[in-house]
Computed example of a mutant assay.
Amino acid sequence: MFTGIVTDIGKLIDTRPSTAGRRMTIATSYDTQAIDIGASICCSGACMTVIERGKRDDGKGWFSFDVSPESLDKTTLGTWEAGTPVNLERSLALGGELGGHLVTGHVDGVARLVSRDDEGDASRFTLEAPGELAKFIASKGSVALDGTSLTVNDVDGARFTVMLIPHSLSVTTWGERRAGDRINLEVDLMARYAARLMEFEGQSE
C-alpha cells in the first residue's frame, strides 16, 4: 500500500527481456542497502517487487524488478527505455503519515494527457480516462496518476483536470509532462468499492 506521495525521481538505466517478461533496473537516491529483497516500490504508479539491489560507482543505489507481460500491456512500462524518469515511492509503513490517499499500486488503465496550461508557476493538466474508468472519477475526488496522489478539479465526460503546484512539479516527473503523454491511472479505491456495491444493490432489486 502507498500514499501517492512521490519521494524520489529514479531513472531507468537498463531494460532487457527476462523469463518473466522484462527485467528493469532503476537508479535511485534511496539507500538501497536498507531495502529488503521482496520489498514493494511504486514505480510511476505500478507496484513492483525488488529482486536485486546494490550501489553504483557514482554512489547512487539501484534496484531491479521483473515486469510481467500483463503489466507491460496494461501500463506505460512497456514503452519505457533507458533514461526514462520514474516517480518512486516506498511502501507505507504501519503508523506512517498518510499524506495523500490510499494507493494500491495496481494500475487500472492508461490515461491520455490532452493539454497542459501553465497558470503562473502552477500547471493545469487535462486528461482523458479510458471510457470504462471514467465513472470512477469525480470532482474533488482523489486519483493516482503516475503514482502521484492528486485531487480532481473538474470532470467532463471522460475528461478531467488536475492542478499541480510548483513543489509537486519539481519533485515528480510532472514538470516534463506534455500533451500526448500516456499516464498510468489508478482510480480511488473507495470509488471502486462504492460502484461495486451499487452494482450488487441494483441486481437485488
Rank of each mutant, 00 (worst) to 15 (best):
L102E: 13
A195H: 11
F136D: 14
T104F: 09
N87Y: 04
D66I: 03
T15D: 12
I26Y: 04
F200W: 13
S123K: 10
T7Y: 03
G83K: 12
P85C: 10
E176H: 14
S142V: 06
A129Q: 11
T49V: 05
W80F: 07
K55S: 12
W174S: 01
V50Y: 07
V110E: 07
G180Y: 02
D181G: 03
R22D: 10
P85F: 05
D108E: 10
A191R: 00
A158I: 05
P130V: 01
Q203P: 10
A122S: 15
I137M: 09
E176Q: 15
C42I: 01
V86R: 06
E128D: 13
E81R: 15
G61N: 04
F63E: 13
A39Q: 00
K55I: 12
L164G: 01
L189F: 07
M1Q: 10
P130W: 11
P69H: 03
D156V: 11
E52K: 15
T49A: 05
E199G: 07
K135F: 06
P69L: 02
G96L: 07
L169K: 06
I37Q: 11
D31R: 12
P130A: 08
G180N: 00
S29R: 14
T7P: 06
I9H: 04
I51V: 14
A46Y: 02
T173E: 01
T7S: 11
I13K: 12
R90W: 02
A46P: 02
I26H: 06
M1E: 12
T173F: 05
M48H: 14
L72S: 08
A27K: 15
T126V: 14
L12A: 04
G175Y: 00
A46Q: 10
V155T: 04
D181M: 06
I37S: 05
N87S: 09
G45A: 01
D156A: 15
E176K: 12
G109W: 04
G59V: 04
T126W: 11
T49Q: 08
L133Q: 12
L185H: 00
L169D: 12
Q33V: 11
A129S: 15
T173Q: 00
V162E: 12
A122H: 08
D121W: 02
D31T: 09
H167N: 14
D146T: 03
R124A: 10
T28P: 01
L88R: 03
Y30V: 11
I37F: 05
G202F: 07
I9L: 08
G10W: 02
E132G: 09
S168M: 04
D118K: 14
V143F: 02
M198T: 10
G99D: 05
G180M: 02
